Simulated scan of single mutants.
Amino acid sequence: MATSQPIGIFDSGYGGLTVMKEILRKLPQYDYVYLGDNARAPYGNRSFETVYRYTLQCVEWFFEQGCPLVILACNTASAKALRTIQQNDLQKLNPNNRVLGVIRPTTEKIGEFTKTNKIGILATSGTVQSGSYTIEIEKFYPRIHVSQEACPIWVPLIENNEHNSPGADYFVKKHLNNILGKEQGIDVLLLACTHYPLLLNKIQQFLPAGITVLSQGEIVADSLVNYLQRHPEIEQRCSRNGERTFYTTDSAEDFDNHASIFFGQPLQSKHLAL
């Protein structure tokens, strides 16, 4: 058994750092290892099979690092790979380990924020095409009507540090107008991509009054606190030295230069060849 047993946090790139930042605020005592698969990003427009294969490979790597718990802090991976990994692969890889995603914690809570029972999902093309949010929300809140809008240009805008530029205005307004035009009375918009919180100020600037915008980081962090309380058999295996290690499958220098935008502070990563 590894002496260090960190909690693994996975994303196709940088976005999962917005989730990790919130998790660290709630649970700073644990060790964490973050992996961004930047060399193969973005996942949002890739097939189910490709996303599953990439995600499984990264989960296997986390388990090799001694992680008893891995969080897929990526909506596309959660939508396209999580269920298959949980049902088909976990028993073979390590039946005592766990892999969790970001979709279920969000859908369990989302009904608490709407008065009209009409919500909008802003996400990558892959997450929208999977229908995962519609399916999961139906389980918990069958009366809620869900409208979805794919925003494929938002991630490149953010990763090229253009999200605060005037040039981003057109694409933010375009997708907000599209989603609000699909259903009268939408009063909650979910940012169902971990990159999108970086556009929050601009999104709110162009929204009419009375619409709540939800980011996932705090919801997922609260859910993890609850999960560890309910599952002491996992919690007790997580090491507590306050250590954070960051890996990227692309250039570590490039990752470090961009990552502080998402993480809120400088960090140093290591290159991982998969």
Rank of each mutant, 00 (worst) to 15 (best):
Y54F: 15
H145K: 11
V51W: 04
A79P: 10
D89I: 02
E162D: 10
C151R: 04
Q65K: 15
R104C: 07
Y141T: 00
Q86V: 06
D89P: 09
G66L: 10
E136A: 14
S165Y: 12
E108R: 10
G111M: 04
T76E: 05
A79R: 00
F48P: 12
F113A: 03
K115L: 13
A79N: 06
S47V: 11
N97Y: 15
T84D: 14
F62M: 09
T134I: 11
I71L: 14
T127Y: 08
Y170G: 01
E149L: 04
I119Q: 02
K174W: 08
I137A: 06
Y52I: 12
I110F: 01
L69Q: 04
N75F: 04
Q129I: 05
V70L: 09
E149S: 13
A79I: 05
E136N: 08
T134N: 15
E64D: 13
I85D: 05
A168R: 11
T107W: 01
T76R: 00
E60F: 12
R40W: 02
P68G: 08
C67S: 10
C151D: 07
E149R: 02
V102N: 00
P42N: 13
V128T: 04
Q87I: 06
E136P: 03
E162Y: 06
Y170W: 15
Y54C: 00
R98T: 08
T84E: 15
F113D: 05
F113M: 02
L122G: 07
Y54W: 05
I103E: 02
S78P: 00
E108M: 06
R98F: 08
W61R: 13
P166S: 13
D89L: 00
T55F: 01
V172T: 09
A123M: 06
Q87M: 14
S165V: 13
P166H: 03
V102F: 02
N94D: 15
G101S: 02
L72T: 09
Y52P: 03
P95G: 10
N88H: 12
K118Y: 14
N164F: 01
D89T: 11
N88C: 11
L100V: 14
N164L: 08
A79H: 04
L56G: 06
Y54G: 05
T107D: 00
K109W: 13
A168Q: 14
G44E: 05
Q91H: 08
T84P: 03
H145P: 11
N160F: 04
Q91D: 12
G101Y: 01
L93V: 14
P142N: 03
F63K: 12
H163N: 15
I85F: 06
L69F: 04
T76N: 03
E108P: 05
Q87P: 08
D169N: 14
K115W: 09
A81D: 10
E136W: 03
A81G: 09
Q129R: 10
T76K: 01
G126T: 02
D169V: 14
V128G: 02
N45E: 12
T50R: 02
L82T: 13
N88G: 06
V146C: 02
N117D: 12
S47N: 01
